[in-house]
């Protein structure tokens, strides 16, 4: 018996949200008197023994480069073999693109109940109950998993890591790898940008910025704070900004430490995607903008006057 966590990688590096998932898995293991083990697929450049600091005892690696080609069916079959070999009865993923493709398949293969988008550790007081976001972030549900094996995908930025110290044992895992049916023919990734779903700080702009030429107010502040940039739906719809920056009910749901919204009125669909942010700042010239009701801090004012001063003040703070 153990808890197995799938570590996602991007360009050979373990993702930030995978470290959260690893620590989350180790806390589940602690509570159920077992140990957490991890599995990594494909070629990885990182030193995996540091996973010990997150509570993981063993890291199983399948470093076959064919696994760099993502086919959910192939990955699922490798993970099922790892589950059998480790005897895991709880499998944890960070709720990433890979998890969304693989976790449901694995759920069927193992007949394991799946809770996707978990935001807290399972409650063992009455079975195995996991809190997750529902209604696109407007509410939470407590889901009881009734099957013997269980799968959880953990939302990024939902679980606070508690570091310990330890060295994880690295163990190559000999898996049978199927021939992929899906071929990746092209990858187009924006490198050097902070990943929006994992970012601690997100600076976001709406129609109030009047045009893509004014986006320097968003990107300058983001650069100073090491933040990711986002936008409201109308802004993506009229192609001022790329679609992958759209946060809200039909876009990405995020939960950063700080969400800084400039010129966004805060329609209910937008709030759904950002209301799990810890601190929300709203800059809007309309005092009636609904976003102020969901905000922690705000300025009722013209972004074109206010933002340059804010950027200057942050610059000074960073230099101090």
């Amino acid at each position: 018996m153990s808890v197995l966590v799938f570590l996602d990688q991007a360009d050979g590096h373990i993702t930030k949200s995978s470290f959260e998932a690893a620590n989350y898995a180790s806390k589940i293991a602690e509570q159920s008197g077992t140990t957490a083990e991890a599995i990594v697929l494909g070629t990885v450049a990182d030193d995996l023994s540091v996973l010990g600091n997150y509570g993981v005892k063993k890291v199983h690696t399948v470093s076959d480069p064919s696994l760099n080609n993502f086919d959910a069916q192939v990955i699922t079959n490798v993970l099922a073999q790892a589950v059998a070999a480790t005897g895991a009865d709880v499998i944890v993923f960070s709720n990433s693109a890979a998890a969304k493709a693989v976790a449901p398949r694995l759920s069927v293969k193992l007949k394991a109940g799946l809770v996707s988008g978990a935001v807290a550790l399972p409650d063992f007081s009455n079975g195995f109950v996991v809190k997750k976001t529902v209604f696109s972030g407007k509410a939470f549900a407590h889901i009881a998993v009734t099957s013997a094996k269980k799968i959880i995908t953990l939302n990024p930025n939902s679980f606070t890591i508690e570091m310990g110290s330890g060295i994880a044992e690295i163990m190559p895992f000999a898996a049978t790898i199927d021939t992929a049916k899906v071929t990746v023919t092209a990858v187009n990734k924006i490198t050097g940008e902070v990943s929006l779903s994992e970012a601690d700080i997100v600076i976001s702009g709406g129609r109030g910025l009047k045009g893509p030429e004014n986006w320097g107010l968003v990107t300058d502040l983001a650069k100073l704070l090491g933040a990711a940039t986002a936008c409201s739906r109308p802004v993506a719809d009229i192609d001022w900004r790329p679609h992958h920056e759209h946060v809200g009910q039909t876009g990405l749901a995020i939960a950063p430490n700080l969400y800084f919204a400039i010129g966004i009125s805060g329609a209910i669909q937008h709030l759904a995607g950002v209301n799990r942010s810890k601190v929300i700042v709203v800059i809007n010239k309309d005092p009636e903008a609904p976003f102020f009701k969901a905000a922690d801090y705000g300025i009722v004012g013209d972004a074109f006057e206010v933002m340059p001063k804010i950027i200057e003040a942050v610059k000074k703070l960073k230099q101090a």
């Binding site: 407007k138 939470f140 549900a141 998993v145 009701k293 705000g298 300025i299 006057e305």
Partner: peptide
Amino acid sequence: SLTTVGSFDLPPAKAGVKLVSPENPEELV
């Protein structure tokens, strides 16, 4: 069925927005 929905809850209400004067945005920082 491998899961059942137990209960729901809503996110805690915000304490209310702290407004900063547009004349002094440095205070927000």
